[in-house]
């Protein structure tokens, strides 16, 4: 598998703020040294590899996935780079994790839980098949994805929870780069969220997925944490994937995050 090295926007923004970096930012000098080291050797590689093995043995690998999705193996990477998608036989706009669940059920197996580490690993592997592909989600492809995009935008913009915040409160263009308690606020498109998760999250010492990362922000900002795979969660991923597509970002899995 190809190794992907991601520069961290954080590192670049650091010099521009006139406060002592050690005190102001949540990433200490020691953390940054560790980050550079991990760039060489992403701890998530092992999870991705493991995910690949399970995917191969339990579901039948790329060939089975391509067949299930009705594309050739050659077309598969490009097709993966367009998820979440409306999959007719599943009747919904879904993520690749849900596609794998349906494959498991079709094959008479027990489906792996969406929020399990095992599924995170499989998802990371399957998404890594599309590494270097430009994200090509088409949010106008059909009425279903159109509706998902609208729902995603709404979910992103709606303030709720104990503090009355929305995703947009902290990630809107007019506020990106400002500092929230030692952390610069990232632009989710520029930061290529859609192309860099699943990622190894250093502060959590584990592999996390895009939707799991969304849950992290919900929890911190006191928004009720909604479940992985729910319509709104998939829609949120559609919306955030479009942000990366607009910036012509490519898939680079596994990412490495603070």
């Amino acid at each position: 598998m190809k190794r992907v090295i991601l520069p961290l926007a954080l590192l670049a923004t650091m010099g521009t703020v006139s406060v002592s970096a050690g005190e102001q930012f949540a990433m200490s000098d020691a953390d940054r040294a560790m980050y550079s080291e991990m760039l060489e050797n992403n701890p998530a590689d092992i999870f991705v590899e493991e995910g690949g093995e399970i995917f191969e043995e339990a579901i039948g690998g790329e060939a089975a996935l391509a067949k299930f999705l009705g594309v050739s193996e050659k077309e598969l990477p490009k097709y993966i780079a367009g998820f979440p998608r409306y999959i007719k036989k599943l009747g919904n706009v879904v993520g690749l994790d849900q596609v794998m669940q349906a494959m498991q059920v079709e094959q008479g197996q027990k489906k792996t839980e969406l929020k399990s580490g095992k599924m995170f690993s499989m998802l990371a592997y399957v998404k890594s098949l599309a590494n270097d592909e430009v994200i090509n989600i088409d949010v106008t492809a059909d009425e279903h994805i159109k509706a998902a995009y609208v729902l995603g935008k709404k979910t992103y913009m709606t303030p709720r929870g104990g503090r009355g915040l929305s995703c947009n409160s902290c990630h809107s263009a007019d506020i990106v780069g400002q500092v929230l308690r030692t952390q610069p606020l990232p632009d989710l498109g520029d930061n290529n969220v859609a192309g860099t998760w699943p990622a190894y999250r250093m502060t959590k010492s584990s592999l996390r997925t895009t939707q799991r990362r969304f849950q992290g922000c919900m929890k911190n900002a006191l928004l009720k944490v909604i479940p992985i795979g729910s319509k709104e969660m998939v829609a949120l991923e559609v919306y955030v994937t479009k942000l990366a597509a607009d910036k012509k970002k490519s898939i680079a899995i596994p990412g490495l995050k603070r």
Binding site: G229, S230, K231
Partner: peptide
């Protein structure tokens, strides 16, 4: 029929209850 073969838990009510 695969339309029920995967998990898609409901979040709509959770979000409604979370509004202010």
């Amino acid at each position: 029929d695969l339309t029920k073969a995967y998990d898609m838990p409901d979040a709509t009510k959770m979000i409604e209850k979370d509004m202010f």
